[in-house]
């Protein structure tokens, strides 16, 4: 098996007095879904932000194909093939669906925007997600929470990035659309993408994850195989049952 696409080595990040990440190591491979779980405030979004260029680590390195990279901004990460759906979605309410999907990566025809190509591609991405978005030329402020989330996912899929980081992508989705997004994640893996899926709904993850990284208070508490039992995960997340000596199954 080839080496990981994207890795974190000894990454730490603090916000004032809060240690959001402490000495975190992680690897994502092609054809793999790495799930990140943890309680609220465990540092999951911070980890996703570091991978996506939204947070710069205080210490440690991000490696792409084994080489250190400086992910200065989400734009840089995106240009290196790392796309993200942020927990807060990062949609601009006043812009319509097509404008949001293509924001920062618009298709042009000569000097002008190619609205026709963008609208078609937006419909294609949304159909692929079985999205129930009725109209792509309405501002996204008029959409429901689930529809907004689908729009954010569609944006991350634009241009077929190598690594897709999804921070709680199913948080406000209904049953059918959650299944649709999980399906999509499986398809992404089949197509060879590396997927990082952040969630605190352990149930979701077991369906799709190849490995599950458990964060607790900013530290990597454990790494499980995808078939870990719900009880084990819950115990590791909450610390209800203290694990024995530090053990890291499935890592490297």
């Amino acid at each position: 098996m080839s080496g990981p696409v994207l890795s974190l080595r000894g990454v730490s990040k603090r916000f004032g007095g809060v240690r959001a990440l402490v000495d975190v190591d992680a690897d994502v491979h092609e054809h793999e879904v790495l799930a990140v779980v943890g309680d609220n405030g465990a540092g999951k979004s911070t980890l996703a932000g570091v991978l996506a260029g939204a947070h710069r680590p205080d210490a440690g390195q991000v490696l792409l194909d084994g080489r250190p990279v400086l992910l200065d901004s989400p734009a840089v990460a995106r240009s290196l093939g790392i796309a993200a759906v942020f927990q807060e979605l990062a949609l601009v309410d006043d812009l319509d669906v097509v404008e949001n999907v293509f924001l920062g990566h618009e298709t042009v025809r000569g000097p002008l925007l190619d609205e026709v190509a963008m609208e078609r591609e937006a419909w294609r991405l949304l159909d692929q997600l079985a999205a129930s978005v009725p109209e792509v030329r309405e501002p996204v402020r008029t959409l429901s929470g689930g529809q907004r989330q689908v729009v954010a996912v569609a944006r991350a899929l634009l241009g077929s990035p190598r690594v897709v980081v999804l921070d709680e992508p199913t948080a406000s989705l209904g049953v059918r659309q959650t299944a649709e997004v999980l399906n999509l994640i499986v398809r992404l893996r089949e197509r060879g993408h590396a997927v990082v899926l952040v969630s605190h709904q352990a149930g979701d993850l077991q369906a799709v994850a190849d490995r599950i990284l458990v964060l607790r208070l900013g530290r990597v508490h454990d790494v499980f195989d995808g078939d870990a039992s719900y009880e084990d995960l819950l115990a590791a997340m909450t610390g209800a049952v203290r694990p024995g000596a530090p053990h890291r199954r499935g890592q490297r």
């Binding site: 901004s73 989400p74 734009a75 404008e99």
Partner: peptide
């Protein structure tokens, strides 16, 4: 209305953080 720059202008004014996260310069 019709260029990438114009779209960035509206996005930055509408929600600067979202625009930054989306990769707008």
């Amino acid at each position: 209305r019709r260029t990438r720059w114009g779209r960035s202008v509206r996005a930055v004014g509408g929600d600067r953080r979202a625009a930054m996260l989306a990769g707008v310069p």
